[in-house]
């Protein structure tokens, strides 16, 4: 019975992707177009293109820059968000400016950052961080602000020390919102990882895809796009696993309230 249940679950998860791959496969099967190579050709080039060298020279640097930029955004967004959310006056003072900066599409900042930070890893990490910090920051502010008053009173009555109050009351209380922000930030960070490599870069996933496109290595370009999609799926699975751990209490509470 459990085997059947597992089978059904697998069919639900894998069903649509299998259909899409099949449609792609058959729609391009006899294709002679340069821009729409058969999926079989794309998959044939996938191994030689990525697994023989580029994994270390392009994929890994991209992922490291993504990790650095995202980690910085998490740290900065949570820290600033906690400060802004804790003091209404600071919030009133900063909110208009934050709304302004948030509204600027991060890719337009790339040329500016190149001026200040050069074309190295630092610039790309900066772009990822600046672009993905906003959802984390703004959600943290809201999360900190909406912590229950009774819970705050409880922490005061039992004379929690500052550190305990920060961790056990403020950060954990705001954690559902922080995680929501972090999820939005992750997809922005992936986009910016690629975009930052399309300008003035010497390696990386985005750089490779643009190179393939410019040199008419179309199957390779398609394989890069597939790889990006796969990385996105993998990161989102990792994120879900972390979320399930951090917010187990929250999901349990919500299930109990239903």
């Amino acid at each position: 019975m459990t085997a059947v249940a597992w089978g059904r679950k697998f069919a639900i998860v894998a069903g649509l992707p299998a259909v899409l791959v099949a449609v792609w496969w058959f729609a391009t099967a006899g294709s002679t177009s340069v821009y729409w190579p058969p999926l079989s050709t794309v998959l044939e080039t996938f191994g030689p293109t990525w697994l023989e060298g580029r994994l270390a020279s392009d994929v890994l640097p991209s992922l490291l820059r993504l990790a650095a930029g995202y980690a910085l955004a998490l740290a900065l967004g949570t820290a600033l968000g906690t400060v802004i959310g804790s003091w209404p006056k600071v919030r009133a003072l900063t909110e208009p400016a934050l709304e302004f900066f948030r509204a600027i599409p991060p890719p337009v900042l790339v040329p500016i950052f190149i001026l200040f930070a050069g074309i190295g890893d630092g610039m790309k990490i900066l772009v990822i961080m600046v672009g993905s910090v906003w959802p984390i920051l703004l959600n943290t502010v809201e999360g900190v602000r909406s912590i229950d008053e009774v819970l705050r009173d409880t922490a005061r009555c039992y004379r929690f020390r500052r550190r305990t109050r920060l961790i056990q009351l403020v950060l954990r209380g705001a954690s559902p919102r922080i995680v929501t922000g972090a999820r939005q930030a992750l997809s922005i960070a992936i986009i910016l990882m690629v975009i930052s490599e399309m300008f003035a870069a010497t390696n990386g996933l985005g750089f490779s895809i643009v190179q393939f496109q410019r040199s008419f290595a179309i199957p390779q370009m398609w394989s890069g796009i597939i790889l990006l999609g796969l990385i996105g799926v993998a990161l989102s699975l990792i994120f879900r696993a972390c979320e399930a751990r951090i917010l187990a209490w929250y999901q349990g509470q919500r299930a109990a309230q239903r």
């Binding site: 229950d148 008053e149 009774v150 819970l151 009173d153 409880t154 005061r156 009555c157 039992y158 004379r159 056990q168 009351l169 954990r172 954690s175 209490w249 929250y250 509470q253």
Partner: peptide
């Protein structure tokens, strides 16, 4: 300020316990 020798039990039990 809330003194050391005092404990309070609030009406809103659901909101005064740390759900995590």
């Amino acid at each position: 300020e809330p003194p050391r020798g005092m404990a309070v039990v609030f009406q809103e039990y659901g909101r005064s316990l740390f759900p995590w």
